[in-house]
């Protein structure tokens, strides 16, 4: 199995008055796991639909490995898909589900059997035990594996996953994410994974795009986006952050500053500005939440509520009701300039 490079150029799509995608350009490197993260309704499924060929873009082109496939119908694109509802064929056994794509291609029975066996091995489903079962006789996790196996059986050029894990319990989800990552590496198939859940995105992505209102706000490696988000929206949607008006750090009022929770420092004494600290504010501890290795402190300050994530060892001196100073450090300071229409 060998993935292709997928490139989208200036894709736009409207449904009546709704703009689903606005001038989206994107390049997914061959064999990579690319995650698109965004709130529900931002256009993620539409984007996948355009790559798969179900949705015709109003403008723009889609390239697989440099070849324009914009007008190619879905059945000719050789794209594997998994939807949130999995859409296993309820009237077919596990074997027949996985074999479906091979059958419509008219492959010989012997090859079909071998290939089905191989992908079932890849997704770790025992052939003997499960091949003959019907979808409703499987657990949720097993159904996920079948859906994935079915998509992989055709050796797709691209694998598209549309929120496949959003109905899955947390514990199963963690396991399946790990599996997915392994399978994707083994199959080396270019994968577009769409989700509204930042923890999934963080766990999976080689590359990440954060999407909002039909546009890609930022594309990059996860660490990059976490450390240097280009907008307040990206910062909030990918990780948690404290946001203050610019004046706290001595900047102009038309900008905002952000500090990740783990970079937010506290002090009982009034700090000096300078020496790594660009500003501070007074506050009071209102809640202390134990989170295993860390403790989350919620504070009320003159500039609104603030959260701080401290290692357990450092948190013991702060108790609910304590008056403290919240420090804004220079390292980790993120500046958001005003971008118009109320957005930073």
């Amino acid at each position: 199995m060998k993935g292709v490079e997928v490139r989208l150029e200036n894709i736009s799509k409207r449904y009546g008055n709704t703009v689903a995608l606005k001038d989206v350009s994107l390049s997914v490197p061959r064999g990579s796991l690319f995650t698109v993260l965004g709130p529900s309704g931002c256009g993620k499924s539409t984007l996948l639909g355009i790559v798969a060929g179900f949705v015709e873009p109003d403008k723009g082109r889609v390239f697989f490995e440099g070849v324009d496939v914009t007008s190619l119908p879905p059945q000719k694109r050789n794209v594997g898909m998994v939807f949130q509802d999995l859409a296993l064929f309820p009237h077919m056994s596990v074997f027949e589900n996985i074999a479906f794509g091979l059958r419509v291609r008219g492959e010989p029975e012997q090859t079909i059997r071998e290939k089905v066996k191989r992908v079932m091995e890849l997704v770790r489903l025992d052939f003997q035990e499960y091949a003959g079962r019907m979808p409703h006789q499987l657990s949720g996790g097993q159904q996920q594996r079948v859906a994935l196996a079915r998509a992989l059986a055709i050796e797709p050029r691209v694998l598209l996953l549309d929120e496949p894990l959003s109905h899955v319990d947390y514990s199963v989800k963690v396991l399946l994410l790990e599996e997915l990552k392994r399978i994707q590496r083994e199959a080396k198939v270019t994968t577009l994974y769409v989700t509204h859940d930042q923890s999934e995105a963080m766990y999976l992505a080689d590359y990440l795009a954060v999407m909002n209102y039909g546009t890609l706000e930022q594309v990059g490696r996860p660490e990059e986006i976490y450390d240097r988000p280009v907008s307040e929206f990206v910062a909030r949607f990918f990780g948690d952050i404290n946001i203050f008006p610019g004046e706290v750090a001595g900047l102009e009022a038309s900008s905002k500053i952000g500090v990740r929770l783990e970079r937010t420092m506290l002090s009982k004494k009034e700090p000096h500005v300078g020496n790594g600290v660009v500003g501070y504010m007074r506050g009071r501890v209102v809640e202390k939440i134990f989170q295993g290795p860390h403790v989350l402190l919620k504070l009320e300050t003159d500039y609104g509520s603030v959260k701080a994530l401290l290692p357990r060892s450092e948190s013991s001196i702060y108790n609910v009701g304590d008056r403290v100073f919240v420090l804004v450090p220079r390292s980790g300071l993120i500046v958001f300039r005003y971008r118009g229409s109320g957005r930073y």
């Binding site: 059945q75 794209v79 594997g80």
Partner: peptide, 14 residues
């Protein structure tokens, strides 16, 4: 579910 048709199509079914 319309997704059944979409999946089938993506798997190569006309």
């Amino acid at each position: 579910s319309p997704n059944l048709e979409k999946i089938a199509q993506s798997l190569g079914a006309g």
